[in-house]
């Protein structure tokens, strides 16, 4: 045989890859940057002697995490549940809809203009309408999150389903594959990287959406806590809320990145 196996290092085990490039490493990395950032902040505020009611130092509000952690944790949990529900709903509806729209031409022609219009419209304007319909309830936030992440997931999934080489269809048909088999064995995994790309954008939008929704129509969650702290000029709690939102966003991003690595072990390590 003339051509040899390309000299590449043997693929690492999934567990090794998780540790090397996964959440552990990314968390360690971010913790370090955050610590440096906080130290700079603390130093600058002390240097210029800025009052607490204007900009609190990390030493002012980090202590509040210890004192107020039941309240912060409760609200962070409420936000996370809303986020997970809205995001999950978005993915569960967007991916099958994308497949339907790509498969049925008439459906795409009919629905796509509406979707483009809804996508361009700022989703948060629906908030006040949702409050009238559903009252001040977690449902409003869930629906706003759903709307925020739905479109990026839909658009990227459609792109992914369409990007599958049509000749693969010849190959699966020559194998006698049923439409379900062709989807399950070829089309879905082949589109997975696009679907995840959509979800990565979607989760960022979803975090944005959940906080705004909690600002306007909620009685729980970090957005609600921040709004209340703001009205009481409680700068320390407000900044705690800010940090807590960032942590929630970080955790969701890390969860997504980890599930991507588990579900797509074939991806070439970068």
């Amino acid at each position: 045989m003339s051509d040899q196996i390309a000299p590449v290092t043997s693929p690492p085990t999934p567990a090794a890859r998780l540790i090397r490039a996964g959440w552990l490493w990314s968390i360690l990395n971010s913790v370090l940057s955050v610590v440096i950032f906080l130290a700079l902040w603390e130093g600058l505020i002390r240097l210029f002697d800025v009052p607490v009611w204007l900009v609190p130092k990390p030493s002012d509000f980090l202590g509040r995490f210890l004192v107020d952690y039941p309240e912060i944790l409760r609200n962070a949990l409420a936000t996370s549940v809303t986020l997970a529900a809205g995001f999950g709903l978005g993915v569960v509806i967007a991916v099958p809809l994308a497949l339907l729209m790509v498969s049925i031409g008439a459906l795409e022609r009919g629905l796509y203009p509406v979707i483009v219009f809804l996508n361009i419209m700022p989703k948060t304007v629906i908030g006040p309408i949702l409050i009238i319909w559903f009252g001040v309830s977690p449902l409003v936030s869930v629906l706003v999150v759903f709307l925020m992440c739905f479109f990026p997931v839909l658009v990227d999934s459609m792109h992914g389903f369409r990007a599958v080489d049509p000749r693969l269809d010849y190959i699966t048909r020559s194998m006698g594959a049923t439409p379900w088999q062709a989807f399950r064995y070829v089309r879905l995994p082949a589109s997975m990287s696009h679907i995840f790309a959509g979800m990565r954008i979607g989760i960022v939008k979803a975090v944005e959406g959940v906080i705004i929704a909690e600002f306007i129509g909620s009685s729980a969650g970090l957005g609600f806590m921040i709004m209340r702290a703001s009205s009481f000029m409680n700068m320390e709690l407000l900044f705690c809320g800010l940090v807590a939102v960032a942590i929630v966003a970080l955790i969701f991003n890390a969860l997504l990145a980890t599930s991507e690595r588990i579900m797509m072990p074939w991806v070439r390590p970068r």
């Binding site: 040899q4 196996i5 590449v8 693929p11 070439r268």
Partner: peptide, 10 residues
């Protein structure tokens, strides 16, 4: 090996 780890001939 995954396809990207193989040469064109392979």
């Amino acid at each position: 090996r995954y396809p990207w780890q193989l040469s064109g001939g392979m």
